[in-house]
Design a protein around this nucleic acid. Structure first.
Lengths: 144, 144
DNA sequence: ATTTTTTCGAGTAATATTATAGATTATATA
DNA sequence: TATATAATCTATAATATTACTCGAAAAAAT
């Protein structure tokens, strides 16, 4: 399951992606729009900022804005920051690999073998889908 | 992440899948082979039994055996018993649907829209892969 | 009868997730 | 320079989930 942290992160980035040519938006504003607990969002935005996705400015008139084109922010990167691995088993993870503690022989593990395929299928979608795509899908869904 | 419960379930079914024409195997034997905490495995096997995948027999000479051809036991069914939904968001789940509590407007949610695609990709693999396939993959991996 | 083995109901321990609190630092502007 | 604003930092509380344990009952074999 996707954590709330990740959902909040995506939602916040979508809000900021719609705010591209405006002055930075405050945490409290984003929290209000998306009904996200403010203090929790604070932590999440900080993580995204430290990962280079957001620009932030302190003080009056400060706030957050996207540091990149929404077309270049992919779900896979966000999820790796907020939830960690994409794979469903650690031994099938590209970026967060480690041995499963129950595993006896990784090289011949049929479970791992299947979940590498699952990871690849998931990864394909998540690394092709950007914040801009999410925004586009929303407007498409509205018009349907 | 796949829970240990699910991994244990798959491993137990694989063990029983290799034991097809022999007398039923005891929980303690399976637990020993796969190094699964016995009492925990007990619960898991009971769930699988109640779902119709296993035959069980009490008393001396009793134990567990598969109730179906390993070719007809698919990962998707096991995972739904042990972990519940396949989808990463409840609102994209086929068998365990419910609204996300953070969600304001499901019909136009871009996140949901993407994760329906992810679910479909995952589902395709998990509903095509059986216990027999896992066993086959293991022997293939050994010979490589 | 006795032993073996599953079944059942409940409880607990460990860990992860979600959220909150309060003080600190940076910036703008009056 | 004082004041208000807003992000940053560190810690901790609350809640949920996962992983596992306990003990006794029921069924079957010898």
């Amino acid at each position: 399951m996707l954590s709330k942290k990740t959902k909040y992160a995506i939602k916040a980035l979508v809000v900021l992606g719609k705010n591209m040519d405006q002055p930075p938006m405050q945490i409290s504003k984003i929290a209000e729009i998306e009904r996200i607990p403010k203090k929790f969002l604070e932590q999440i935005l900080l993580d995204l900022r430290n990962a280079g996705f957001l620009y932030s400015k302190k003080g009056a008139g400060g706030g957050y804005s996207l540091n990149r084109d929404p077309k270049e922010i992919f779900l896979v990167s966000i999820m790796r920051i907020t939830d960690g691995p994409i794979a469903m088993v650690p031994c099938a993870s590209l970026n967060f690999y480690h041995k499963c503690d129950e595993c006896h022989q990784e090289s011949t593990c049929g479970i791992r073998d299947v979940f590498v395929d699952v990871r690849d299928a998931t990864l394909k979608i998540l690394s092709e889908t950007s914040i801009a795509d999410i925004i586009k899908r929303e407007t498409t869904l509205i018009s349907v």
